[in-house]
Design a protein around this nucleic acid. Structure first.
Lengths: 328, 328
DNA sequence: CTGAAAGCGCTTACAG
DNA sequence: CTGAAAGCGCTTACAG
């Protein structure tokens, strides 16, 4: 493995000059530059970026932490992130917590040990205080979640509006008893959607009914159980909003298998708009999120921070969602 | 940000001693160690791993390159990889090529610039010669693919056997005209499966019919077109093997939408066994691959190489697959 | 058991 | 336009 030193020796110049050529310093005389470039080619020299990064005090690496890759929604966000980073000169370490709180510290440690320059937290349920502390010390961008009282840049859809839109669709079909199935995580996005849900109900003159709302872990058995328990309590249920395509796909399967006992036809709208929603039978009505753009923008905003560009005015970036009505 | 130097000063010792404490050198006197550890806690000192890695000439990072996260099969492999790396002291950069050949060089460059120590190529279609060169210079592990004449460690299922098993299942139902739909990529895994397919046909006394085999890009329209073109040529088609759950899900959708014109009922078996196969309606029969273990083992083998452990005897690790017969 | 010194491979302020 | 020297923050062979 050759080094600047070796290139320098062979080119008859100093290491400083080689470094200048490498960094496209225009001050270098053309002849010198060409000589150096030729030697670089001859030796097939590649700079050691660990050394460069140490010297420059930057790892040129960012971290994106997602709950899991098992949900295509998050996989879509990761794709957007990859695309955004690809020509930037940065690398991205994509990590998942798999819903295990301990894991997050692993990734935060990358910041503390100078292995990463910034962090994107996707659908993180990190406590607000911890988040505040973290963002004080390192560049952080939130994806999908946001806190009005925290000065952290975020990217997401307008969840209140999205919840409102989904509910209105079901109300528009004449349904008055509408359930809401969520995952087990408390989150600002869920709160937003729930407030839109309540708002739409209120406008329709329907009282909020806590019996119609329930949490389920993201596995088939739990979802079946939870939907049945709602249906048992509220025989008149006509519609269900599922907080993700994954949840909705389990519900659909449960209905088909006869394991979910619903009183009759029930309208179903989910969130995310992954390919799952297209491919299911019946095809899912869903509030599509711009997964790719969510990931892409998150990276864009973080890079902007890292490069000390003047920040965009808004601390919160809202990307448009889109209600897609299909068969459910 | 504090450094070993600062810790050393405050603890009244040299940097060397601080470093020894950090690295759990047993030679350090207990009193000294405790004093140092106390200062480390007081200052909340975290070592700069860029510096450490430069000195140790290892990035403690590996790269896993996958075709895309959009396919849950690859997402499953990534999950296994994450799990395997988590307690290892290494980090993994997970990259996707999104079927763009140029992208791969980005990740290979991480090796050349000392930003990564080793590489896992998942379902890579890198040309064999390039692969040989690469593996000469860097630790490489292949996942899903393998080359008998290349001395590179690999992890995969036994694709010949898997193709054989899938075909036998359809033959066992009495079908004699069985199609095979693949993606557009040439690969050793596909060749393996095809040879199992042909072997099973031959054993059943059925001549191989090239009209029944076709490639499609992984998008709905292409799959519809390709399946229809086979069905047009071979009116008697009774069974289809799809090279992935993704392909099969498009076929199912095409049938349901009436866009695929099949002569009658057709048996369908896919590969992978992602959650898609469970959740589709009808539920897919599939040759399940141990996604998680494929990712996990790939990382395990690469770490073994990096740590200079004596390598396991076999260059090829075959993990078991499992035929799951559901509704299709 | 511990320290002084060298060095990993870069970059850059300074001097000329 | 270019070089000598210092330094990023660690680790380790050597000496004592």
């Amino acid at each position: 493995m050759s080094s600047v030193k070796e290139v320098a020796k062979r080119a008859g110049v100093s290491s400083a000059t080689v470094s200048r050529v490498l960094n496209k310093d225009p001050a270098v005389k053309p002849e010198t530059r060409n000589k150096v470039l030729q030697i670089i080619r001859e030796l097939n020299y590649k700079p050691n970026l660990m050394a460069k990064n140490l010297r420059k005090q930057s790892s040129k690496t960012i971290v994106m932490v997602l709950p899991t890759m098992a949900n295509p929604f998050f996989a879509g966000i990761a794709r957007g992130a990859q695309a955004a980073i690809s020509q930037s000169g940065y690398n991205v370490i994509i990590g998942t917590t798999e819903f295990d709180k301990l894991q997050l510290s692993t990734y935060v440690n990358l910041l503390n040990t100078n292995l990463a320059d910034g962090l994107i937290l996707v659908s993180s349920n990190m406590p607000k205080e911890a988040l505040r502390q973290l963002a004080k010390q390192h560049p952080v961008v939130l994806c999908n979640e946001y806190y009005d009282d925290l000065d952290i840049q975020s990217v997401s859809i307008n969840n209140r509006q999205a919840g409102y839109d989904a509910t209105c669709e079901l109300l528009g079909r004449g349904y008055r008893s509408i359930g809401y199935i969520t995952g087990t995580r408390e989150s600002s996005s869920l709160l937003g959607r729930m407030s839109g849900y309540r708002e739409a109900l209120q406008e329709a003159g329907i009282a909020f009914n806590a019996n119609l709302v329930a949490k389920a872990k993201s596995n088939y058995e739990q979802v079946i159980e939870v939907v049945n328990s709602i249906a048992d309590k509220e025989k008149s249920i006509e519609g269900i909003i599922a907080n993700s395509d994954m949840l909705a796909s389990y519900i659909l399967k449960g209905i088909k298998e006869g394991e979910i006992r619903l009183p009759g036809h029930v309208g179903l709208i989910s969130f995310d708009g992954t390919f799952l929603s297209e491919v299911m039978n019946p095809a899912l009505s869903t509030v599509a999120q711009p997964m790719y753009d969510l990931g892409f923008s998150s990276v864009g905003l973080l890079l902007q921070k890292l490069r000390n560009k003047p920040e965009t005015a808004d601390k919160r970036l809202f990307l448009p969602h889109r209600l897609i009505v299909r068969e459910t």
